[in-house]
Design a binder for these strands. Structure first.
Length: 498
RNA sequence: GGGGGCGUAGCUCAGUCGGUAGAGCACCGGAUUUUUAAUCCGAUGGUCCUGGGUUCGAGUCCCAGCGCCCUCACCA
């Protein structure tokens, strides 16, 4: 039999209980953050403090032991001396690495100068039954890291730091828009008709209404309704869901920022994007504008370069005209792209992606996209073949997508109709006439923006995989799950009431 | 879905040509009152991912499956 490591710790639980110690007390004495203890330490030597956190590697010297204690703010060394802890001493081995404790003690330093709290009282706050991963290498196995993120987080401080950074980026993104008098709003995640992007949705069902629903692939069409309603500046940061492949850049649920601003056009939105990046660099990164990603440095200092979509297309394809359907199809075949049954504008868009996007190191705004592949954008008055739309690329990644919003209800309805022509499972199955009706009530001229927060964070934190900046990325379950039971949503048992 | 790689102790990893399953850390016992990945002595710990096959003999070779990673495809 395998020696059960947890059994050693269960035995300690019993020992503690025999001594009248609750290994899981309902409450413990209040404590101060570790860093607050370290603040101005040398003027406070001998002061009594109380800290709470998780213990790590115990170094035992017989009548003296040391162990670092970590809380959310940082780490400090705890010194346990036999002569100061007569009651605790016989039980010292039952309180060990990985346990949560509350330590009361005196601030001090060791002979080597290490800041140390010399414990005078030890309270076990929560007994841990499992061992920490290897203390030096941490937890390396990527699958275990994703499946057991809790362990990954406490074993790998840099992972904690990544998610703190994520939080700060979200906070400062909100601060940026709040500072521009935007209103943060929440729109439906469950939608009767999905739209605002091209993607396969997750489908579900509402029992009481006996109605199919989709998890949103984008919040766009709801946010623009708010502009019709007079909320002239709105943004939403929230999860969207796309039932598609999983990769280092794709998780089925991911976080999208969308903002809409009345009385603005796509040029104004470009300035907003630059402003946001500048704000993030200034506030979250203390003025740093250079970020290393996949082995290269990217300078996010505004202003960003601007290139016309059609110019980039021609440069990358030997002067080929994007609107030359025959020539584009020929080119697509040369590139090994699928062309059968696809409309010419789709093929041309694919050629652009294949020949241009990966080469866009950026940051660069690609602007004036063909109207045919921009169904929600306003066409350019100078050349209706192109739309007032731009995307921001960095490291070949599309980080932002923005345009002057199409607010002509008749035009919008015609474009929806056109979409419904070549039907596939990514296209809405029906006209969103409710949205058209909202447009008929009058959408003021407006500029809108979408930013993939996860990809932005990959860039800002230097993580190659979206799984490293999403706390709980989707993985296949290890046991044999319920499988592909169609309509399982209806049959799923109700959760017991809390 | 295609291609490639990986899966060995709780963790990090070795494992040669097919010949008794290894190390470090953790854990357990002992020593140690100033360590910083403490040190020293001793001990314990294995479904080698799963299931078949080849073989006298498989962690190793073959087949199938599962999971993960990379990559291509897909992907606003």
């Amino acid at each position: 039999m395998t020696r059960d490591l947890a059994a050693d710790r269960l035995a300690k639980l019993d020992r503690l209980r025999e001594h009248g110690i609750d290994p899981y007390p309902p409450r413990v004495p209040a404590a101060t953050p570790v860093t607050a203890c370290l603040d101005g330490l040398d003027a406070r030597l001998g002061e009594t403090v109380r800290v709470a956190g998780r213990l790590a590697q115990v170094r035992d010297f017989g009548k003296l032991r040391f162990a670092p204690l970590t809380d959310r703010s940082g780490s400090i060394q705890i010194g346990f001396q036999r002569d100061r802890l007569p009651e605790f001493w016989p039980l010292r081995k039952a309180v060990e690495a990985n346990d949560h404790v509350v330590i009361e003690g005196e601030l001090g330093r060791t002979d080597k100068g290490e800041p140390t709290i010399w414990a005078t009282a030890v309270t076990l706050a929560s007994k841990t039954l499992r061992h920490a991963p290897e203390k030096w290498a941490g937890l390396q196995d990527v699958e275990t890291r994703y499946r057991q993120r809790a362990v990954d987080l406490y074993a790998n401080p840099e992972v904690r730091e990544t998610f703190r950074l994520r939080s700060r980026v979200l906070r400062e993104t909100r601060a940026y828009f709040d500072g521009l008098d935007y209103l943060e709003v929440e729109t439906p995640i469950l939608q009767p008709i999905f739209g605002g992007a091209m993607a396969r949705p997750f489908k579900t069902h509402h029992n009481a209404l006996d109605m199919p629903l989709y998890l949103r692939i984008a919040p766009e069409l709801y946010l623009k309704r708010l502009l019709v309603g007079g909320l002239e500046r709105v943004y939403e940061i929230g999860r969207v869901f796309r039932n598609e492949g999983i990769s280092t850049r794709h998780n089925p649920e991911f976080t999208m920022l969308e903002s809409y601003e009345a009385w603005a056009d796509y040029r104004d939105i470009m300035a907003r994007v630059e402003g946001l990046f500048g704000h993030l660099c200034e506030t979250v990164f203390e003025g740093r504008t250079t970020f290393r990603f996949r082995g290269k440095d990217y300078d996010l200092k505004p202003p960003f370069a601007k290139h016309r979509y059609l110019d980039l297309f021609e440069q990358a394809n030997g002067g080929l005209d994007w609107f030359d359907a025959a020539g584009v199809t020929k080119r697509a075949k040369e590139l090994g792209l699928k062309t059968d049954g696809l409309p010419a504008d789709k093929i041309a868009g694919d050629v652009f992606e294949a020949t241009v996007e990966d080469t866009l190191e950026g940051p660069v705004f690609v602007h004036d996209y063909p109207t045919a592949i921009s169904p929600l954008s306003k066409a350019s008055p100078e050349d209706p073949r192109v739309a007032e739309r731009f995307e921001l690329f960095v490291a070949g990644m599309e980080l932002a997508n923005a345009f002057s919003e199409l607010n002509d209800p008749v035009d919008q309805e015609q474009r929806f109709e056109a979409q419904l022509q070549h039907k596939d499972d990514e296209s809405p199955s029906e006209m969103d006439s409710d949205y058209i009706a909202a447009l008929e009530h009058g959408l003021p001229p407006a500029g809108g923006l979408g930013i993939g927060i996860d990809r932005l964070l990959m860039l800002l934190t230097g993580n190659d995989s979206i799984r490293d900046i999403v706390l709980f990325p989707l993985l296949r379950r290890l046991d044999a799950g319920p499988g592909e039971a169609e309509g399982s949503a209806q049959e799923a048992p109700a959760a017991p009431d809390a």
